[in-house]
Design a protein around this nucleic acid. Structure first.
Lengths: 225, 225
DNA sequence: GAAAAGAATTAGACATGGCTAAATTTATAA
DNA sequence: TTATAAATTTAGCCATGTCTAATTCTTTTC
């Protein structure tokens, strides 16, 4: 029906669309998937011919109503697999991404539904990313504030961390930071460094501001902006 | 490293080599994989260039010492997945083959080892086919007598059934025949029909001789030949 | 608002894994 | 043993997904 590569493009467009709100530009997609822009252009032609995307030359691309559920299905597969690998097969959360990225294209919906059942229909994956339901509902996926948005003194709960950088994940894990961890923001240095104090007694953790911007949080005190 | 398609060729050569003992002919491989002979020829050139097979034009092909472990690894993946799908994800044994046939190329060795651990290092898959160990040992894989070799009156235990025909598997399952089932051979009709009486009280089951030849057995009485 | 810079597309090439049709080698039979 | 049949390989084409280089839009900037 659809090649694994085409599925990857649809998944990428979906993610970028949700980040940037609106049409996704060729250059952004090329960077994200790590191919040349010309490769993206020719793929967009194929995908729009088959009505998975609405593509306007020089203007960018967005998913059609046909494309969205396909992207969501792949994302569901990916996140269920990540959950399964950590919970049932004793994988470390830093190593699940690559395995899931391959398998997501090859498991059947039945396989996905069965592991969802085994896991008790989990709502999020090990990095805190919401798992679309079997009927591809993602209404619970509000993506609010970021760690970088807070002030010194705020107490916040970690909600999501990015899943693609194993080194970062190992670092966070070593310092006891996971979705659910409550941390105090103890310092925000002017040169772009945020220091946290997790409530697990492991001592303070410093993060570059760029990383702090990629971590989603939930305020526990009122001073967030 | 090696494409899923190339892996399929190596797996096919391994299986055919074990059935026919010796070089595998182009035509046989083409039939097995379901491509044209010319396609096989060109693939054999590529595989022999990379030293996975020893290929002699017009004479056939066989796996090299480099090719064998790759084939065994894929077979290990396939059979572990089949076992996993039936035992842990409630698949019917008639539907595991296709899912395993896709996934076998995409799971890592780590994934395979983890599910093997979960399953308690099983020796055979749901159809009775032996699962190579993690160090690719298949010494337990003696393939002895077939159901078609027996005489009326023999009592035999089913050891392996072919895994590729879902209809046959559903039929056997419906009549309570699995690896391990003990059956009496009650009739061998001259027009090629074998009738069995399983020890589960479900009444007699008739099988075409061709099917009976594809089922491996273990004698419980002495009259087999 | 014209020129320069930046983005995006087109043109043309390559590798993979298929196919059909033609040529060649091997096997079989008269 | 020679002609015919069968099996196999070669030649040449196609689709997919990628690349580089050249061209054509768009957007800035002066």
């Amino acid at each position: 029906m659809l090649s694994a590569i085409m599925e990857d493009y649809l998944k990428a467009i979906y993610s970028l669309q949700n980040e940037t709100d609106g049409r996704v530009r060729t250059s952004v997609l090329a960077e994200y998937i790590d191919v040349e822009q010309s490769t993206v252009t020719s793929m967009m032609k194929k995908l729009s011919e088959r009505d998975f995307v609405q593509y306007e030359p020089y203007k960018g691309v967005e998913l059609t109503d046909t494309g969205v559920p396909i992207a969501l299905e792949i994302i569901r597969h990916h996140r269920l697999l990540e959950r399964y690998l950590t919970d049932h097969l004793e994988y470390d959360w830093a190593e699940v991404h690559d395995e899931a990225d391959r398998l997501e294209h090859h498991i059947s919906s039945k396989f996905a539904d069965r592991i969802a059942e085994q896991l008790g229909q989990p709502a999020v994956d090990p990095h805190g990313d919401p798992i679309p339901t079997a009927d591809l509902d993602v209404s619970g996926a509000k993506d609010g504030e970021r760690l970088a948005d807070h002030q010194v003194g705020d107490s916040v709960q970690i909600v999501r961390v990015p899943d693609t950088d194993p080194d970062l994940l190992r670092y966070l894990s070593k310092h006891g930071i996971h979705p659910g961890t409550v941390v105090d923001v103890v310092e925000i240095a002017p040169f772009g460094m945020v220091t946290l104090d997790p409530d697990n007694g492991d001592g303070p953790v410093a993060l570059p501001e760029e990383v702090a911007r990629s971590i989603s949080t939930q305020s526990l005190t009122q001073s967030s902006h």
